[in-house]
């Protein structure tokens, strides 16, 4: 089993508030790990520590064996191996879809404009938005914007993709398109860590579900176990609250 992401003893405090209280997590190649838990449980912070958008207070994070917290590590080189998709899409409003996808290809991977546009078009095709290459973000629906954001990350050919509530800002009828793309990525064998409340997606697509509560991973296992036979009371309560 090739481990892509390895988190050990990860702690993160904001001032006096300890948000992550020692997280250990290994994600294998081609695995889809799903993270659930109540708001404030540290799910997003965990993801954001994995590419150092947040600086961990202590612990270690290794991506493809590289200690990304080591002094002198080239964080930009590390980050292009880690795709990230945000709740609020964060597309660049002054660039069209293709421009959004090709910026890092040109400036980080140093591809020529023609090479970048080839790779960028391919990435847009993979999320089904080839025909929107020239559209600006404000001309796209939320679902389309999120798919462009996925293409932007995919184009860099990352070894792992982190999704931070990718569908939470979408109208319900737009969620399906984004999840369909994520399902396809799983078919291609992309390694993914997904923070989300889309339990139906988790049941059908996740290899493993982590339940986080108050800065700790309280329970983990295959989706049928976590959703149907959770061991922890907190997990049971959380699942019950989701089912209304």
């Amino acid at each position: 089993m090739q481990v892509i992401l390895e988190v050990a003893g990860l702690r993160k405090s904001f001032g006096h508030l300890e948000v992550l209280k020692g997280i250990d997590l290994k994600v294998a190649a081609r695995e889809l790990v799903f993270v659930i838990g109540p708001s404030g449980s540290g799910k997003s912070t965990l993801l954001r520590c994995c590419n150092r958008l947040e600086e961990p207070t202590s612990g270690s994070v290794r991506v493809e064996g590289v200690d990304i917290l080591a002094p002198g590590v080239d964080i930009n080189a590390v980050r292009r191996r880690i795709g990230m998709v945000f709740q609020s899409f964060n597309l660049y409003p002054h660039l069209n879809a293709l421009g959004n996808v090709t910026l890092a290809l040109r400036k980080v991977l140093k591809k020529t404009r023609a090479e970048a546009e080839d790779a960028g078009s391919l990435a847009l095709a993979r999320v089904g938005l080839m025909d929107k290459a020239n559209a600006y973000p404000n001309e796209l629906s939320g679902g389309q914007q999120q798919r462009v954001a996925i293409a932007r990350a995919l184009a860099l050919e990352p070894s792992i993709m982190l999704f931070d509530e990718p569908t939470s800002a979408l109208d319900p009828e737009l969620v399906g398109g984004v999840l369909a793309v994520m399902r396809e990525m799983r078919e291609w064998g992309m390694t993914m860590v997904v923070v989300s409340h889309e339990m139906r997606f988790a049941r059908s697509a996740a290899d493993r579900v982590l339940f986080m509560d108050q800065g700790r991973i309280l329970e983990e296992g295959p989706p049928e176990k976590i959703f149907n036979r959770p061991e922890q009371v907190r997990t049971r309560e959380f699942i019950a609250s989701l089912n209304g």
Partner: peptide, 21 residues
């Protein structure tokens, strides 16, 4: 801030993010 985070997460440096985004 999300613009910074999106750009930095793709490997763009501080100055590149400033200039292009």
């Amino acid at each position: 801030r999300g613009q910074w985070e999106a750009a930095r997460s793709t490997g763009l440096g501080f100055l590149q993010t400033m200039r292009h985004v």
